[in-house]
Design a binder for these strands. Structure first.
Lengths: 192, 192
DNA sequence: GGACCCATGTAAATAGTTACATGATTGC
DNA sequence: GCAATCATGTAACTATTTACATGGGTCC
């Protein structure tokens, strides 16, 4: 289960509350595993009862009290074991690609519309990634090693959307070409 | 739920048994949604009781009898509705990328090893994809439109592994450069 | 004789989402 | 007054995986 190790990874450098974590894992920004707050609170309880993490309650005056969690020694050991575990190259699981692979059932115009809609969505996603200071916190990283690796991680995320966009644009132009050449439009003739 | 629509998509052109479908969805080959036979048999029952598909038992002599499923009118309507549904650009969920984004906790040598292992795995995956006649059934497709779209679909799958591989290779060489420059090896001197 | 393909299923566990629930504080 | 942020949780449902279960046929 990746969410366990994702949380442990976050807690290695400093403790966080469930609320903090749920913001990190909310799917916006560059994080390669999303989760809802429900899942995070449940996983935190589980990690706690397995001795991987421990909590401490922080009393607050102007906001509700919070429980912050930190890694135990056992948690650290487990984290480092996981960081050196070989991950399999998993089959791609992608709703749009699944749908795309059956688009040939549809009419030419529907296919073109669906590809154009996807292109717009990808462009929106890329521009929101770029505009929302994607690379901004790299400047605060003092270690060059850490900065390079974090940069590579960010680069992967942007690049994958760019790859899909380029693939789609090229595919769309090829498809339009085929449609225009193979099915020349009938010239509308006046009835009389 | 994508698996429902994935199955319905498969059944549009011709009927299949649960066993046939479980081979299609086994994660090898180019299919953008994997599933186990357990999940397929359960989903088939569900689709059947919802009136989306219907089954027919085929008696066989040299192998066990099988139940083949075909799409009903309701199933077809639902399928075409889904084929025109806008899919969201979802956050990337990738175990390796998750792990990679915390590799900076490790030593230089561990990071290099892990990246090299991943490179090998990706190269294996790509060569097995290419050698196992990935594009072979495109030749039997008579419609140019269908052939182009199926080709694009295959191209996406290969391209995504190629993208990851290139990203990793470039990243690894940059990382090695940084390591060599910032931490010059101490020259081993003879004791006397 | 053992492994692998055909063929279909159930049971149980784990992973993930959506809806429900509460309650104080801050800003418009 | 209404929405948003802070903060934590439960209940119920849906999705997915792993293990269990059976049994004939073919190939080496």
């Amino acid at each position: 289960m990746s969410i366990k190790h994702a949380i442990m990874s976050c807690l290695y450098k400093k403790p966080f509350s469930g609320y903090d974590l749920s913001k990190m894992f909310d799917g916006t920004g560059n994080f390669y595993w999303a989760a809802t707050h429900t899942q995070i609170y449940r996983t935190l309880s589980e990690l706690d009862s397995n001795g991987m993490i421990k909590s401490q309650t922080i009393e607050q005056e102007q906001s509700p009290n919070k429980k912050i969690y930190f890694l135990t020694k056992e948690g650290q050991t487990e984290l480092f074991k996981w960081l050196n575990t070989e991950m399999e190259v998993e089959p791609i699981r992608d709703k749009f690609q699944l749908q795309f692979s059956f688009q040939y059932y549809l009419s030419d115009q529907e296919i073109i519309n669906n590809m154009e809609t996807r292109i717009k969505k990808l462009e929106d996603r890329l521009s929101s990634l770029r505009s929302s200071g994607y690379y901004k916190d790299l400047k605060n990283v003092s270690s060059e090693k850490e900065r390079l690796l974090k940069y590579l991680s960010l680069e992967y995320g942007v690049g994958i959307y760019e790859y899909e966009l380029q693939w789609l644009k090229k595919g769309l132009s090829r498809f339009k070409e085929l449609v225009e050449n193979s099915a020349p439009k009938e010239v509308e003739k006046p009835i009389f």
